[in-house]
Design a protein around this nucleic acid. Structure first.
Lengths: 202, 202
DNA sequence: AATCCACCAAACTGTACGGTTTGGTTTGAC
DNA sequence: GTCAAACCAAACCGTACAGTTTGGTGGATT
């Protein structure tokens, strides 16, 4: 009953997502969505009162399902732990954000985000905000454990996330042909440079 | 004659720019442009065969007129020179990109950039590409002068530009209310952290 | 058996807007 | 003074498309 409703909803969302991702938002008509979903127009509008609502739901779902920074379960005990965690984080961010599917999603999001203030705020909080916050938390933890002296965690997290995101943004979202994620050794060097910027001697 | 033509062209471009920046691209009709420019529709189409062409010209003009990184005329002789140059660069980038007018322009650009592959590539090269390249050049120069050991200039420039851009992108383009440029002391700390990441002892 | 709800197909409405056409007026060249 | 090019105002065309309406079917509940 409610199950069926949820299923239909999912069916529509999946169709919309597929079309939006390939044809873009403006390039996708509501008729196309009904066709792809195998659903009548009336039904579509019963679930999503307006096209923008449909977009919003697609985007929110898409964003929330990509878990970029799983909460760090285990403790950070020493410098090597921290280093490993940072490498893993950088690697996870780049590989997951540079998947073709994800790039398409992000381009869709970014293509609309600047037209809709509400969406913009949501995005800022959901993605970069989250990544920065988790990184900052990790660094604070390291500082609390005396592994590292982090005077300005807010700046520190940007010193780490910023460079990583250049690979994602410039070589992924903005590039003509999607670049592969950076080499592992490159990320290692990035992490070591970051650690050096925090005053860790090599 | 040719002067007059150029003037008319400018007049149309200015009107279009103003409207695009405030109402957005889709939110601006060609009729609105003619009204704002005080020009007939026929004339408008004589200068710009299509609405997209008009947009492209507005964007290209806007991008090229913002000179983010003036070529460094004077030499970099020692570490203090380099430090000063980097601080200046960071400051120039943040202040000029965080001007409300510029934010509006960038939002317009970014709002369309993901829909038009050609535009995307142009943008990538014209802005972030240019900034990275100039930074990299500066660092190479510093390295050549023996001021600093820069093993990987490509990574190094990202270690600098990345963090700076977080302030611009996250707190400017993506934020609800435009943030003021970061404090000078914050940028100084950023630069010092960067230098530390390059192995410079404080 | 009656009813109600979710669903479907398809025609329809309204409008916004990019682009064209018409027909007439100014401006400058020669 | 004439001619052509640049310009204007305004009506016009075509179409795409979001959202509505109509009329009808099937399956679960009472």
């Amino acid at each position: 009953m409610a199950r069926r409703k949820a299923a239909k909803r999912e069916q529509i969302l999946a169709a919309a997502r597929k079309l939006f991702l390939t044809q873009g938002f403006n390039g996708t008509s509501m008729d196309a969505v009904t066709a792809e979903a195998g659903v009548s127009k009336q039904t579509l509008y019963a679930y999503f009162p307006t096209k923008t609502d449909l977009l919003a739901d697609v985007l929110y779902a898409g964003m929330s399902e990509l878990v970029l920074v799983p909460p760090t379960a285990d403790e950070i005990r020493n410098l090597d732990d921290l280093r490993e965690h940072l490498i893993t984080l950088a690697s996870r961010l780049t590989t997951s954000l540079l998947q073709p599917e994800t790039i398409a999603l992000m381009r869709l999001v970014l293509g609309e985000v600047f037209h809709v203030a509400e969406l913009r705020q949501h995005f800022r909080e959901a993605l970069p905000g989250q990544v920065l916050a988790r990184t900052e938390a990790m660094l604070r933890q390291a500082d609390a454990h005396g592994i590292l002296r982090v005077e300005d965690p807010e700046l520190a997290s940007r010193m780490f996330v910023g460079p990583v995101m250049t690979y994602v943004a410039l070589d992924g979202f903005l590039s003509a042909d999607p670049a592969p994620p950076p080499e592992h050794t490159r990320l290692v060097r990035l992490v070591d440079a970051f650690l050096a910027s925090m005053g860790v001697q090599p």
